[in-house]
Design a protein around this nucleic acid. Structure first.
Length: 552
RNA sequence: AGGGGAGUCGCCAAGUGGUAAGGCACCGGAUUUUGAUUCCGGUAUGCGUAGGUUCGAUCCCUUCCUCCCCUGCCA
């Protein structure tokens, strides 16, 4: 386990007995969108740390803004957390579980003269907030009496005022250099039905006020979030300190710790841009396999283990991360290589006719399901007169170092026979349409003492091969950081990010199901598309290519 | 009257006063009927910059530079 600054804080707290050795973290998504790889990182950090220190991690939906939130997002988020391999039961919570307490605490702040109802509109509040260089000025409503504040706040709660008419603010310091401390709003009026509390409330608490109190109620020990909340920490601490000093909340309070969010090159991650790409049809839905949403990654063939490995490798720090897409791909290869069943699939077929093989004859060949695990058994397929090989495994005029099929030369059809290219047939444009070859009957794969050649390529015979659609994905954008380019980020979409091909597959793939991962030998890792692949109509997604060490 | 953070190999990332871990990538070499995997070996006289303190500095002090975040009744 790699050390990082968060673990150091926890270990120091455990050593001093600050929380009695307990570690309780939380993953607090707002149910207003789908999870992406950045959230996965946060999930792995929070659940991972809890697990490593014998603690628990809560899943808490930050559902304080009913105008933006929806249960469909909540369900999707739960599904993805589970898919990643983490268990949140019985620690599933909602900020809305605490609305009663939050409200009572708000009255408590009013009674202590630490909160007031402000009747300025949003524009006036903004104008009075000042700027980075200039202090703000107090609201004309700042000195309302406790009774007046209480009365007004209760009226707000009781639906006597329109949206935006008033807001409840903490009375801190309008001159603070930290904008978050310039009398932050903590309650606003929203006559909107809430997905969980229905029409019980028409005032809803804001994030800064809600989050810290929710953490404290759940006895979270370490509240891990991203860097942009650093400037909110003084407010987080201020609210809890006031509640602790009046005995409303226990001590010690949770500690907010911020780490750098994850960025990955050749993609965009903001909710707004993801939504725009979906709505403009640049991609096909939230689970498009080119998206780094978790739904997209899953559909593409990424495994939970690969994402956990990736999260572990990228670590947690306060320096801004800009991680190579290749690192995620590497983690997938590493996760899949030891377990993925192998199969031969020709993605870009070229016909080969073996002229000295009798018409109509077939012969069984076999190969291990996994080359390093014979207990997984073997798969079988036919050798026949007519087979398909990969177009890129043939070169009419071979480049230096090319040791696959070439005119007059030999190559092994993996698990089958050695063949020799005798002559070619081309169409009008010069494209090779058929390779005529001969085979050497003494070279069947596995023949003791048999001769061998340098090259071995994959193939599928026409006699028992299956046809399938295979979707080849590439990076969604052509530049490392689409957000940092002149013009619109959408100008940099990769027009070749999806290429569909008709492939020939060995028969063992007949019953392939979504959720299964296969290594198509010498090509990459593929999975049946969970939406469109069916028995008899196979559709595979390429999750990632194999590493290719060949350079001409 | 601004405040808060960050800068260690191509990408991540430990170390925080005793002479630069590790991973990924990359480069060699071995094995290989996947140009994959696996296995061996290699890769920062250097820690944003310039000074200072010290026997000794990535670490402490000072200067400067670069980047990120903060003025929602979003989270």
């Amino acid at each position: 386990m790699v050390s990082n600054f968060i673990r150091q804080i926890i270990e120091a707290d455990n050593a001093s007995g600050k929380h009695g050795g307990k570690v309780v973290t939380r993953f607090p998504p707002e149910p207003n969108g789908f999870l992406h790889i950045g959230h996965a990182k946060s999930i792995c950090v929070n659940f991972g740390i809890a697990k490593d220190y014998g603690g628990v991690c809560h899943l808490r939906f930050d559902d304080t803004n009913p105008v933006k939130e929806d249960v469909i997002y909540e369900n999707s988020i739960k599904e993805m957390v589970e898919w990643l391999g983490f268990t949140y039961q019985p620690n599933l919570f909602h900020a809305s579980d605490y609305f009663d307490t939050l409200y009572a605490f708000a009255e408590h702040f009013i009674e202590r003269g630490l909160a007031y109802v402000d009747s300025q509109n949003a524009e006036e509040m903004r104008a009075h907030r000042g700027s980075f260089e200039k202090p703000g000025v107090n609201s004309p409503f700042r000195d309302r009496s406790v009774d007046e504040n209480l009365t007004l706040f209760r009226e707000m709660r009781d639906g006597k005022h329109a949206d935006g008419a008033h807001v409840l603010r903490l009375k801190i310091d309008m001159a603070s250099p930290n904008m978050n401390l310039r009398d932050p709003a903590i309650y606003r009026i929203r006559h909107v039905e809430h997905q969980r509390t229905g029409n019980k409330w028409c005032v809803y608490p804001l994030y800064d006020y809600t989050h810290c109190i929710s953490d404290a109620i759940e006895r979270i020990t370490h509240s891990i979030c991203t860097l942009e909340f650093e400037a909110h920490r003084p407010l987080y601490d201020w609210v809890l300190a006031r509640l602790v000093e009046s005995g409303k909340l226990p001590s010690p309070s949770p500690q907010q710790i911020e780490f750098a969010r994850l960025n990955i090159n050749y993609t965009v991650m903001s909710k707004r841009k993801l939504l725009e790409l979906v709505e403009t049809g640049a991609v096909n839905g939230w689970d498009d396999p080119r998206f780094w949403t978790l739904a997209g990654l899953r559909r593409r063939g990424y495994t939970p283990g690969s994402i956990r490995l990736f999260a572990e490798r990228t670590g947690a720090s306060k320096a801004h991360q800009w991680v190579d897409m290749a690192d995620l791909e590497g983690a997938l290869r590493e996760d899949l290589d030891p377990v993925a069943a192998r199969a031969m699939v020709v993605l870009d077929p070229i016909r080969v006719v073996i002229e000295n093989w009798p018409e109509g004859k077939t012969e069984e060949c076999s190969a291990p399901v996994h080359p390093k695990d014979e207990t997984r058994g073997r798969r079988t397929f036919q050798f026949a007169r007519e087979v398909f090989i990969e177009r890129e495994d043939f070169m009419e005029t071979p480049a230096k170092g090319f040791f696959r099929l070439t005119p007059g030369a030999e190559v092994r059809l993996r698990y089958g026979y050695i063949i020799k290219c005798e002559r070619l047939e081309k169409d009008a444009s010069g494209k090779v349409t058929t390779i005529y070859a001969s085979y050497d009957p003494a070279t069947k794969s596995g023949t003791p003492g048999g001769r061998n050649v340098k090259g071995a390529i994959h193939w599928v015979s026409k006699s028992d091969g299956l046809q399938a659609e295979v979707r080849l994905y590439d990076r969604l954008f052509t530049v490392e950081n689409p957000d940092d380019q002149p013009g619109d980020y959408k100008d940099y979409l990769n027009p070749n990010s999806l290429v569909k091909v008709n492939a020939w597959c060995e028969p063992s793939l007949r019953n392939a199901e979504p959720g299964q991962s296969f290594q198509f030998e010498r090509n990459g890792y593929f999975t049946p598309d969970r939406v469109e692949s069916k028995r008899g109509v196979l559709v595979f997604n390429r999750a990632v290519t194999l590493k290719d060490g060949w350079k001409p």
